[in-house]
Design a protein around this nucleic acid. Structure first.
Length: 358
DNA sequence: TCTGGGGTCCTAGGACCC
DNA sequence: TCTGGGGTCCTAGGACCC
């Protein structure tokens, strides 16, 4: 049986800010959009635990956060800095594991099966990793330990903040049973509502469910839900992951129908996408434009070039065409986004797989 | 409360080829 | 004349996660 850990950095962006501004440690700290006196449109990205005491949390409108605690410290998101800190952490995790899979800027799975003899040594090993990260970077984290990805994740959530939690395979179902269904990884707002209306309030209810019933309403996802509720999950980590799409989107300060203004925004966004594309050294085949209207309705339109391209002109031209195909609506636009996908690796960047002809 | 931005995966219908 | 099935690509939308 494999020993899988999920390492998740605690309140990561805010913790990074506390690191370079130690004086903010004793204050409620909110990283996210500039509140602009409470009229801004952004949201809270992350906040420290002092800010949470006032009811502030991730994804909350920044205007609400501002109302809850006007004299909190509000800082903008400095992604490049967090990425630098993240890289340090990820290097450490790689050195402590036999397999490593980064899930996001502040989270990674590690397989440590080859590093320790069994689960008896796992908590001690996690403590070592946690201490090492703290010493080297000054950042706190939480670690979940189990025999598959799902349970490592669920254990980690239970261990937060600054904790280590191990859930053995034989304890998994019991551990999950009392939790509300919404806590299960993969169950969001919509699925939670549907499950509750079917009478499944807790994960335990779901584990005792009629699978035929779940599959008939949710399809393949229903079978997956059932497996998850029983604490079963994948134990294979994917190490060589390739990016699938690159996009940027921007919300206007106020909704607009001004074509000139929107086209200008598309141009500026396309340039950012292009820069990222060059960094990743990939070519794209498909361009997608996303529009969010004043009423929050969202639409995507995409077109395939029929061939690979790495040119800015192709992004801009197609994005503008796609946008113009919406123009008869003429409703106020809140947000506009541009995304490219359908990648092929560019010359000189052949993957090992392609190289050996696999 | 009034809602950002960066992603992933899944579904489903239609086109087209064999 | 009416009838297959598999495979892949394209497009649009939805749900979810961090």
């Amino acid at each position: 049986m494999k020993i899988i850990m999920l390492v998740d950095m605690d309140y990561f962006f805010a913790a990074c800010e506390e690191l370079r501004h130690p004086k903010y440690k004793e204050k409620p700290l909110v990283v996210g959009a500039d509140p602009k006196g409470g009229v801004a449109r952004g949201v809270v990205s992350t906040c420290n635990y002092l800010a949470r005491k006032y009811g502030i949390h991730s994804a909350m409108p920044i205007s609400t956060a501002y109302r809850l605690k006007k004299d909190a410290v509000f800082l903008p998101v400095d992604y490049p800095y967090y990425e630098k800190m993240s890289n340090q952490v990820m290097q450490i995790l790689k050195s402590f594991s036999t397999k490593f899979e980064q899930v996001s800027i502040d989270e990674a799975f590690i397989d440590v099966s080859g590093k320790i003899d069994g689960f008896e040594q796992a908590v001690e090993y996690a403590r070592k990793i946690k201490g090492f990260i703290k010493n080297e970077t000054g950042l706190p984290c939480s670690i979940g330990i189990s025999s598959n990805r799902l349970m490592a994740k669920m254990a980690c959530e239970a261990g937060k903040p600054d904790g280590i939690k191990m859930v053995l395979e034989e304890e998994a179902e019991k551990f999950l049973a009392p939790m509300p269904v919404g806590k299960l990884y993969g169950v969001g707002k919509k699925t939670k509502e549907r499950l509750e209306s079917m009478g499944y309030k807790t994960i335990g209810d779901l584990a005792r469910a009629n699978t035929v019933n779940l599959v008939s309403t949710f399809g393949v996802f229903g079978a997956e839900l059932y497996r998850s509720a029983k604490g079963q999950g994948e134990d294979v980590l994917v190490e060589n992951y390739e990016i699938k799409s690159i996009g940027r989107e921007r919300t206007f300060e106020s909704d607009t129908t001004d074509r000139e203004k929107i086209i200008a925004q598309i141009n500026s966004i396309a340039k950012e996408v292009y820069e990222e594309l060059k960094k990743e050294r990939v070519s794209f085949k498909t361009v997608t434009v996303k529009i969010r209207y004043y009423d929050f309705s969202e639409h995507l339109k995409s077109r395939s070039l029929g061939h690979y391209s790495d040119e800015l002109g192709d992004i801009v031209d197609n994005a503008v065409k796609l946008f113009d195909s919406y123009s008869e609506k003429n409703e106020p636009v809140r947000k506009i986004g541009v995304r490219v996908s359908g990648f092929s690796k560019q010359g000189g960047q052949k993957s090992m797989k392609e190289f050996i002809g696999a």
